[in-house]
């Protein structure tokens, strides 16, 4: 068994190196309790629904979410809107479809199977409308940023006046968590910006947390089943390992050698 200590130390060391090297640029992000972290982490259903509201009312005017469909909103492990609610949400959007029998494109109300409607026709149109900066697609955004959810959560609350000596061009804002501190998105959130249906007080902090939770789900829609399955798999493996360990001891006891 001494060997194992060695092997695990080496593994830990290797991984430690690895993690260290990727966390090269360290900024202290704002911390909050995420319900989806940890072995049994689950999404906070209400937060996901509120987060979706913030996304539609605020973010979605510039940011697309091209990999999500309206049906996802009613799926297990997500915001879990009822199917009727999800249908109503989908129907509130105009979707371009076609060509029809006459060869013309037409618009119709959205269906569950439709992808989230994009705010712009294409990347160029998005850039043209936003001073040359492309508002990134938010489907996998939290996985595409080094700091993950903490980074997004902090960034949304990180707007402040530039320190003396920092010059900002027209349409550029100062954010203490942004890489290089200059961001082309202006501060979007202000207290009471949205009115939550469940009566939650819509502070900037609350909205940041809700929308970040929503983005986490958008990037990892199967996170809950992953955690559930992971726990079962690991418990199963541990039990099997213990059984195999004792079988091994038994078998090797036939010869006079330590295992």
């Amino acid at each position: 068994m001494k060997n194992f200590l060695g092997i695990f130390t080496l593994t830990a060391l290797l991984l430690g190196f690895q993690l260290n090297s990727y966390a090269a640029e360290k900024v202290e992000y704002l911390k909050t309790d995420w319900s989806f972290k940890g072995l049994f982490g689950k999404f906070d259903r209400a937060a996901l629904q509120r987060g979706y509201q913030v996304y539609t009312e605020v973010c979605s005017s510039c940011h697309s979410m091209q990999y999500l469909s309206y049906r996802n909103l009613a799926e297990k492990g997500g915001p879990e809107f009822s199917e009727a609610q999800a249908k109503a949400i989908a129907a509130s959007f105009e979707v371009k479809d076609g060509p029809n029998a006459d060869g013309d494109m037409f618009t119709r109300p959205g269906k569950l199977s439709d992808k989230f409607v994009m705010p712009y026709e294409n990347v160029k149109a998005a850039q043209a409308a936003n001073g040359g900066a492309y508002p990134p697609d938010m489907s996998v955004l939290v996985k595409a940023r080094g700091g993950g959810v903490d980074y997004i959560y902090s960034l949304l609350q990180g707007y402040e006046d530039p320190p003396a000596g920092v010059k900002l061009d027209e349409g550029v804002y100062y954010n203490k968590y942004m890489y290089g501190n200059k961001i082309k998105m202006s501060n979007q959130l202000s207290d009471g910006l949205v009115e939550y249906g469940d009566g939650t007080n819509a502070t900037v902090e609350q909205m940041s947390k809700d929308v970040t939770t929503f983005l986490m789900w958008a990037a990892e829609p199967h996170l809950e089943s992953r955690h559930k399955m992971g726990f079962k798999a690991i418990v199963y493996l541990i039990i099997l390992t213990v059984l195999v360990y004792f079988s091994m001891k038994r078998i090797w006891s036939r010869i006079e050698t330590e295992v």
């Binding site: 798999a233 690991i234 493996l237």
Partner: peptide
């Protein structure tokens, strides 16, 4: 496999 599973699932 326990280490492996930890990475995959968590």
């Amino acid at each position: 496999m326990i280490v492996f599973a930890f990475f995959v699932f968590y």
